[in-house]
Design a binder for these strands. Structure first.
Lengths: 160, 160
DNA sequence: TCCAATTTGACCATCTTTGACTTTATTATA
DNA sequence: TATAATAAAGTCAAAGATGGTCAAATTGGA
Protein backbone atom coordinates (compact mmCIF):
# COMPACT_ATOMS: atom_id res chain seq x y z
CA UNK A 1 0.00 0.00 0.00
CA UNK A 2 1.02 3.57 -0.56
CA UNK A 3 3.27 2.12 -3.15
CA UNK A 4 6.17 4.32 -4.14
CA UNK A 5 4.88 4.64 -7.67
CA UNK A 6 1.46 5.62 -6.40
CA UNK A 7 2.92 8.30 -4.16
CA UNK A 8 4.94 9.75 -6.97
CA UNK A 9 1.90 9.74 -9.19
CA UNK A 10 -0.11 11.57 -6.56
CA UNK A 11 2.64 14.07 -6.00
CA UNK A 12 2.82 14.91 -9.68
CA UNK A 13 -0.94 15.12 -10.02
CA UNK A 14 -1.07 17.60 -7.19
CA UNK A 15 1.56 19.70 -8.86
CA UNK A 16 -0.56 19.61 -11.98
CA UNK A 17 -3.86 20.39 -10.33
CA UNK A 18 -3.29 24.06 -11.06
CA UNK A 19 -1.17 24.02 -14.16
CA UNK A 20 -1.80 22.14 -17.36
CA UNK A 21 1.92 21.69 -17.66
CA UNK A 22 4.83 21.35 -15.28
CA UNK A 23 8.56 20.94 -15.44
CA UNK A 24 10.57 18.95 -13.00
CA UNK A 25 14.07 17.64 -12.40
CA UNK A 26 14.13 13.91 -12.58
CA UNK A 27 17.00 13.53 -10.15
CA UNK A 28 15.57 15.96 -7.63
CA UNK A 29 12.27 14.18 -7.59
CA UNK A 30 13.99 10.83 -7.23
CA UNK A 31 15.98 12.17 -4.33
CA UNK A 32 12.86 13.56 -2.73
CA UNK A 33 11.39 10.08 -2.76
CA UNK A 34 14.67 8.36 -2.04
CA UNK A 35 14.49 6.13 -5.06
CA UNK A 36 16.34 5.37 -8.27
CA UNK A 37 15.92 8.06 -10.91
CA UNK A 38 14.66 5.54 -13.38
CA UNK A 39 11.74 5.01 -11.05
CA UNK A 40 10.46 8.37 -12.24
CA UNK A 41 10.55 7.15 -15.81
CA UNK A 42 8.57 4.15 -14.76
CA UNK A 43 5.86 6.28 -13.21
CA UNK A 44 5.72 8.52 -16.25
CA UNK A 45 5.49 5.54 -18.58
CA UNK A 46 2.76 3.79 -16.64
CA UNK A 47 0.68 6.72 -15.38
CA UNK A 48 1.29 9.63 -17.67
CA UNK A 49 1.25 7.96 -21.05
CA UNK A 50 -0.64 9.21 -24.05
CA UNK A 51 -3.42 6.78 -23.14
CA UNK A 52 -3.76 8.68 -19.92
CA UNK A 53 -3.92 11.95 -21.78
CA UNK A 54 -0.44 13.27 -21.16
CA UNK A 55 2.59 14.08 -23.27
CA UNK A 56 6.11 13.94 -21.90
CA UNK A 57 8.95 16.07 -23.20
CA UNK A 58 12.45 16.21 -21.81
CA UNK A 59 15.99 17.35 -22.27
CA UNK A 60 19.21 15.85 -21.03
CA UNK A 61 22.42 17.48 -19.97
CA UNK A 62 22.98 20.53 -17.80
CA UNK A 63 19.72 22.31 -17.12
CA UNK A 64 17.85 19.26 -18.21
CA UNK A 65 14.20 18.77 -17.31
CA UNK A 66 11.14 16.65 -17.75
CA UNK A 67 8.00 18.42 -18.86
CA UNK A 68 4.58 16.88 -18.42
CA UNK A 69 1.77 18.31 -20.49
CA UNK A 70 -1.87 17.47 -20.07
CA UNK A 71 -3.35 17.11 -23.52
CA UNK A 72 -6.08 19.50 -24.40
CA UNK A 73 -9.31 18.01 -25.53
CA UNK A 74 -9.13 17.09 -29.16
CA UNK A 75 -12.19 17.64 -31.28
CA UNK A 76 -14.26 14.70 -30.26
CA UNK A 77 -14.54 13.28 -33.75
CA UNK A 78 -10.88 12.67 -34.16
CA UNK A 79 -10.53 11.55 -30.57
CA UNK A 80 -12.97 8.74 -31.22
CA UNK A 81 -10.96 7.69 -34.23
CA UNK A 82 -7.77 7.76 -32.25
CA UNK A 83 -9.24 5.72 -29.45
CA UNK A 84 -10.78 3.14 -31.73
CA UNK A 85 -7.48 2.79 -33.45
CA UNK A 86 -5.75 2.41 -30.13
CA UNK A 87 -8.18 -0.30 -29.12
CA UNK A 88 -7.97 -2.15 -32.40
CA UNK A 89 -8.76 -5.84 -32.32
CA UNK A 90 -7.29 -6.57 -28.96
CA UNK A 91 -6.71 -4.56 -25.83
CA UNK A 92 -5.46 -5.29 -22.33
CA UNK A 93 -7.44 -4.43 -19.25
CA UNK A 94 -4.89 -1.82 -18.26
CA UNK A 95 -5.01 0.02 -21.52
CA UNK A 96 -8.77 -0.14 -21.58
CA UNK A 97 -8.94 1.23 -18.06
CA UNK A 98 -6.60 4.06 -18.97
CA UNK A 99 -8.77 4.97 -21.92
CA UNK A 100 -11.89 5.06 -19.81
CA UNK A 101 -10.11 7.19 -17.24
CA UNK A 102 -9.10 9.53 -20.00
CA UNK A 103 -12.73 9.89 -21.10
CA UNK A 104 -13.64 10.73 -17.56
CA UNK A 105 -10.86 13.29 -17.25
CA UNK A 106 -12.19 14.93 -20.39
CA UNK A 107 -15.67 14.90 -18.88
CA UNK A 108 -16.97 12.87 -21.77
CA UNK A 109 -18.42 10.37 -19.36
CA UNK A 110 -19.67 10.72 -15.81
CA UNK A 111 -18.13 8.80 -12.99
CA UNK A 112 -21.03 6.36 -12.98
CA UNK A 113 -20.69 5.77 -16.68
CA UNK A 114 -16.98 5.18 -16.32
CA UNK A 115 -17.60 2.62 -13.62
CA UNK A 116 -20.18 0.80 -15.67
CA UNK A 117 -17.74 0.68 -18.54
CA UNK A 118 -15.00 -0.66 -16.33
CA UNK A 119 -17.36 -3.32 -15.07
CA UNK A 120 -18.12 -4.34 -18.62
CA UNK A 121 -14.52 -4.89 -19.61
CA UNK A 122 -13.10 -6.20 -16.38
CA UNK A 123 -11.27 -9.47 -16.18
CA UNK A 124 -14.08 -10.70 -14.00
CA UNK A 125 -16.70 -10.20 -16.64
CA UNK A 126 -14.77 -11.86 -19.43
CA UNK A 127 -14.07 -15.34 -18.23
CA UNK A 128 -12.18 -16.70 -21.17
CA UNK A 129 -8.60 -17.54 -22.07
CA UNK A 130 -6.52 -14.40 -21.91
CA UNK A 131 -6.05 -13.95 -25.62
CA UNK A 132 -9.72 -14.27 -26.29
CA UNK A 133 -10.33 -11.92 -23.39
CA UNK A 134 -8.32 -9.14 -24.97
CA UNK A 135 -10.04 -9.60 -28.28
CA UNK A 136 -13.46 -9.57 -26.77
CA UNK A 137 -12.67 -6.64 -24.55
CA UNK A 138 -11.66 -4.69 -27.62
CA UNK A 139 -15.00 -5.37 -29.25
CA UNK A 140 -17.01 -4.47 -26.18
CA UNK A 141 -15.00 -1.35 -25.49
CA UNK A 142 -15.18 -0.16 -29.08
CA UNK A 143 -18.90 -0.50 -29.08
CA UNK A 144 -19.18 1.46 -25.89
CA UNK A 145 -16.83 4.15 -27.16
CA UNK A 146 -18.94 4.72 -30.21
CA UNK A 147 -21.99 4.95 -28.01
CA UNK A 148 -20.37 7.41 -25.65
CA UNK A 149 -19.50 9.72 -28.50
CA UNK A 150 -22.95 9.34 -29.96
CA UNK A 151 -24.45 10.37 -26.65
CA UNK A 152 -22.10 13.28 -26.50
CA UNK A 153 -23.02 14.50 -29.96
CA UNK A 154 -26.66 14.13 -29.11
CA UNK A 155 -26.21 16.19 -25.96
CA UNK A 156 -24.42 18.90 -27.90
CA UNK A 157 -27.26 19.06 -30.39
CA UNK A 158 -29.85 19.43 -27.68
CA UNK A 159 -27.81 22.00 -25.91
CA UNK A 160 -27.79 24.36 -28.83
CA UNK B 1 -18.33 -28.49 9.37
CA UNK B 2 -15.91 -25.66 9.97
CA UNK B 3 -14.35 -26.23 6.62
CA UNK B 4 -11.41 -24.10 5.89
CA UNK B 5 -13.37 -22.26 3.21
CA UNK B 6 -16.15 -21.56 5.66
CA UNK B 7 -13.74 -20.15 8.19
CA UNK B 8 -12.16 -17.91 5.64
CA UNK B 9 -15.58 -16.80 4.49
CA UNK B 10 -16.56 -15.97 8.06
CA UNK B 11 -13.34 -14.15 8.66
CA UNK B 12 -13.82 -11.97 5.64
CA UNK B 13 -17.44 -11.31 6.48
CA UNK B 14 -16.45 -10.15 9.92
CA UNK B 15 -13.91 -7.82 8.45
CA UNK B 16 -16.68 -6.48 6.28
CA UNK B 17 -19.26 -6.11 9.01
CA UNK B 18 -18.14 -2.53 9.48
CA UNK B 19 -16.89 -1.56 6.07
CA UNK B 20 -18.62 -2.03 2.77
CA UNK B 21 -15.25 -2.59 1.25
CA UNK B 22 -11.98 -4.07 2.39
CA UNK B 23 -8.55 -4.66 1.00
CA UNK B 24 -6.46 -7.64 1.90
CA UNK B 25 -3.21 -9.35 0.98
CA UNK B 26 -3.88 -12.71 -0.51
CA UNK B 27 -0.64 -14.19 0.77
CA UNK B 28 -1.04 -12.82 4.27
CA UNK B 29 -4.51 -14.20 4.57
CA UNK B 30 -3.38 -17.56 3.27
CA UNK B 31 -0.58 -17.57 5.80
CA UNK B 32 -2.98 -16.66 8.56
CA UNK B 33 -5.01 -19.75 7.73
CA UNK B 34 -2.00 -21.85 6.88
CA UNK B 35 -3.28 -22.74 3.47
CA UNK B 36 -2.35 -22.34 -0.17
CA UNK B 37 -2.86 -18.82 -1.51
CA UNK B 38 -5.08 -20.14 -4.24
CA UNK B 39 -7.47 -21.25 -1.52
CA UNK B 40 -8.35 -17.60 -1.10
CA UNK B 41 -9.28 -17.39 -4.75
CA UNK B 42 -11.51 -20.38 -4.30
CA UNK B 43 -13.35 -18.76 -1.43
CA UNK B 44 -13.74 -15.53 -3.34
CA UNK B 45 -15.00 -17.34 -6.40
CA UNK B 46 -17.53 -19.44 -4.53
CA UNK B 47 -18.69 -17.05 -1.80
CA UNK B 48 -18.01 -13.55 -2.97
CA UNK B 49 -18.99 -13.72 -6.61
CA UNK B 50 -21.12 -11.20 -8.39
CA UNK B 51 -24.09 -13.48 -7.81
CA UNK B 52 -23.52 -13.00 -4.12
CA UNK B 53 -23.48 -9.26 -4.54
CA UNK B 54 -19.77 -8.66 -4.35
CA UNK B 55 -17.24 -7.23 -6.71
CA UNK B 56 -13.63 -8.33 -6.56
CA UNK B 57 -10.83 -6.14 -7.77
CA UNK B 58 -7.16 -6.88 -7.48
CA UNK B 59 -3.68 -5.89 -8.42
CA UNK B 60 -0.54 -7.95 -8.74
CA UNK B 61 3.04 -7.03 -8.13
CA UNK B 62 4.56 -5.03 -5.30
CA UNK B 63 1.86 -3.46 -3.19
CA UNK B 64 -0.66 -5.84 -4.69
CA UNK B 65 -4.02 -6.38 -3.03
CA UNK B 66 -7.43 -7.94 -3.32
CA UNK B 67 -10.37 -5.62 -2.78
CA UNK B 68 -13.81 -6.92 -1.93
CA UNK B 69 -16.76 -4.61 -2.34
CA UNK B 70 -20.17 -5.43 -0.99
CA UNK B 71 -23.49 -4.21 -2.22
CA UNK B 72 -25.76 -2.99 0.47
CA UNK B 73 -28.51 -5.58 0.76
CA UNK B 74 -31.54 -3.37 1.01
CA UNK B 75 -34.57 -2.35 -0.90
CA UNK B 76 -32.91 -2.34 -4.25
CA UNK B 77 -30.91 -5.34 -3.14
CA UNK B 78 -33.77 -7.69 -3.78
CA UNK B 79 -34.28 -6.25 -7.23
CA UNK B 80 -30.62 -6.83 -7.97
CA UNK B 81 -30.96 -10.39 -6.81
CA UNK B 82 -33.96 -10.92 -9.00
CA UNK B 83 -32.21 -9.47 -12.02
CA UNK B 84 -29.06 -11.47 -11.47
CA UNK B 85 -31.16 -14.58 -11.17
CA UNK B 86 -32.93 -13.77 -14.38
CA UNK B 87 -29.64 -13.25 -16.15
CA UNK B 88 -28.09 -16.40 -14.77
CA UNK B 89 -25.29 -17.93 -16.75
CA UNK B 90 -26.66 -17.17 -20.15
CA UNK B 91 -28.95 -14.50 -21.50
CA UNK B 92 -30.22 -13.49 -24.93
CA UNK B 93 -29.82 -10.02 -26.32
CA UNK B 94 -33.54 -9.44 -26.13
CA UNK B 95 -33.80 -10.35 -22.48
CA UNK B 96 -30.74 -8.30 -21.67
CA UNK B 97 -32.16 -5.32 -23.49
CA UNK B 98 -35.43 -5.69 -21.62
CA UNK B 99 -33.61 -5.70 -18.32
CA UNK B 100 -31.73 -2.56 -19.20
CA UNK B 101 -34.95 -0.89 -20.30
CA UNK B 102 -36.45 -1.87 -16.97
CA UNK B 103 -33.59 -0.19 -15.12
CA UNK B 104 -34.16 2.92 -17.16
CA UNK B 105 -37.90 2.91 -16.45
CA UNK B 106 -37.11 2.72 -12.76
CA UNK B 107 -34.73 5.63 -13.17
CA UNK B 108 -31.89 3.52 -11.87
CA UNK B 109 -29.84 4.43 -14.90
CA UNK B 110 -29.84 7.49 -17.13
CA UNK B 111 -30.55 7.23 -20.79
CA UNK B 112 -26.86 7.54 -21.57
CA UNK B 113 -25.97 4.80 -19.16
CA UNK B 114 -28.60 2.54 -20.62
CA UNK B 115 -27.25 3.08 -24.09
CA UNK B 116 -23.72 2.34 -23.01
CA UNK B 117 -24.91 -0.87 -21.43
CA UNK B 118 -26.77 -1.86 -24.54
CA UNK B 119 -23.64 -1.22 -26.55
CA UNK B 120 -21.67 -3.48 -24.24
CA UNK B 121 -23.97 -6.46 -24.61
CA UNK B 122 -25.01 -6.07 -28.22
CA UNK B 123 -24.55 -8.86 -30.72
CA UNK B 124 -22.08 -6.58 -32.38
CA UNK B 125 -19.78 -6.36 -29.42
CA UNK B 126 -19.69 -10.07 -28.71
CA UNK B 127 -18.31 -11.60 -31.82
CA UNK B 128 -18.44 -15.25 -30.93
CA UNK B 129 -20.56 -18.29 -31.65
CA UNK B 130 -24.09 -17.68 -30.46
CA UNK B 131 -23.98 -19.96 -27.47
CA UNK B 132 -20.81 -18.45 -26.18
CA UNK B 133 -22.30 -15.04 -26.90
CA UNK B 134 -25.17 -15.59 -24.51
CA UNK B 135 -22.90 -16.86 -21.81
CA UNK B 136 -20.52 -13.98 -22.15
CA UNK B 137 -23.34 -11.49 -22.31
CA UNK B 138 -24.60 -12.82 -19.02
CA UNK B 139 -21.24 -12.26 -17.37
CA UNK B 140 -20.81 -8.76 -18.76
CA UNK B 141 -24.36 -7.76 -17.91
CA UNK B 142 -24.14 -9.15 -14.39
CA UNK B 143 -21.03 -7.20 -13.75
CA UNK B 144 -22.64 -4.02 -15.01
CA UNK B 145 -25.78 -4.64 -12.98
CA UNK B 146 -23.86 -4.93 -9.77
CA UNK B 147 -22.00 -1.78 -10.66
CA UNK B 148 -25.19 0.11 -11.39
CA UNK B 149 -26.63 -0.80 -8.03
CA UNK B 150 -23.43 0.05 -6.35
CA UNK B 151 -23.47 3.49 -7.95
CA UNK B 152 -27.03 3.89 -6.86
CA UNK B 153 -26.29 3.00 -3.25
CA UNK B 154 -23.39 5.37 -3.33
CA UNK B 155 -25.60 8.17 -4.61
CA UNK B 156 -28.16 7.51 -1.90
CA UNK B 157 -25.50 7.73 0.74
CA UNK B 158 -24.24 11.02 -0.54
CA UNK B 159 -27.74 12.39 -0.88
CA UNK B 160 -28.55 12.03 2.77
C1' DT C 1 -19.75 -46.02 -2.73
C1' DC C 2 -19.98 -41.93 -5.43
C1' DC C 3 -20.07 -37.21 -6.39
C1' DA C 4 -19.49 -32.58 -5.54
C1' DA C 5 -16.95 -29.48 -2.89
C1' DT C 6 -12.55 -28.47 -1.22
C1' DT C 7 -7.55 -28.20 -0.95
C1' DT C 8 -3.06 -28.01 -2.79
C1' DG C 9 0.81 -27.13 -5.76
C1' DA C 10 3.12 -26.20 -9.98
C1' DC C 11 3.38 -22.83 -13.21
C1' DC C 12 1.86 -18.23 -15.15
C1' DA C 13 1.07 -13.09 -15.44
C1' DT C 14 1.69 -8.62 -13.83
C1' DC C 15 3.58 -4.78 -11.36
C1' DT C 16 7.46 -2.48 -9.02
C1' DT C 17 12.12 -1.27 -7.96
C1' DT C 18 16.92 -0.98 -8.82
C1' DG C 19 21.26 -0.48 -11.14
C1' DA C 20 24.55 -0.70 -14.82
C1' DC C 21 25.30 1.35 -18.96
C1' DT C 22 24.09 4.89 -22.68
C1' DT C 23 23.05 9.33 -24.70
C1' DT C 24 22.89 14.19 -24.84
C1' DA C 25 23.70 18.94 -23.31
C1' DT C 26 26.38 22.41 -20.97
C1' DT C 27 30.56 24.26 -19.00
C1' DA C 28 35.39 24.62 -18.11
C1' DT C 29 40.05 24.31 -19.94
C1' DA C 30 44.06 23.73 -22.83
C1' DT D 1 38.06 26.13 -30.86
C1' DA D 2 38.73 21.39 -29.52
C1' DT D 3 38.58 18.55 -25.80
C1' DA D 4 37.56 17.04 -21.37
C1' DA D 5 34.70 17.16 -17.42
C1' DT D 6 30.33 17.42 -15.58
C1' DA D 7 25.39 17.23 -15.37
C1' DA D 8 21.38 15.69 -16.68
C1' DA D 9 17.99 12.30 -18.61
C1' DG D 10 17.03 7.55 -21.12
C1' DT D 11 17.06 2.43 -21.70
C1' DC D 12 16.82 -2.08 -20.54
C1' DA D 13 17.07 -6.18 -18.23
C1' DA D 14 17.18 -8.55 -13.86
C1' DA D 15 15.30 -9.29 -9.38
C1' DG D 16 11.59 -8.98 -6.23
C1' DA D 17 6.75 -8.95 -4.90
C1' DT D 18 2.31 -10.09 -5.57
C1' DG D 19 -1.91 -12.17 -7.31
C1' DG D 20 -4.16 -15.75 -10.95
C1' DT D 21 -5.15 -20.22 -13.16
C1' DC D 22 -5.82 -24.90 -13.72
C1' DA D 23 -5.94 -29.54 -12.88
C1' DA D 24 -4.85 -33.32 -9.84
C1' DA D 25 -5.54 -35.09 -5.27
C1' DT D 26 -8.33 -35.28 -1.26
C1' DT D 27 -12.33 -35.17 1.58
C1' DG D 28 -16.94 -35.24 3.44
C1' DG D 29 -21.62 -36.05 3.02
C1' DA D 30 -25.80 -38.17 0.60
Amino acid sequence: MAQLSDSIEQFIKELMSEEAQIELRRNELAQHFGCAPSQINYVLATRFSVDHGYIIESRRGGGGYVRIVRMRQESSGSLLDALLKRVGNSVSEDTATAIIQHLYDLKLVTQNEAQIMRAAISRNALSLPINAKDILRAAVLSNMLVQVFRNHEEAKRNDV
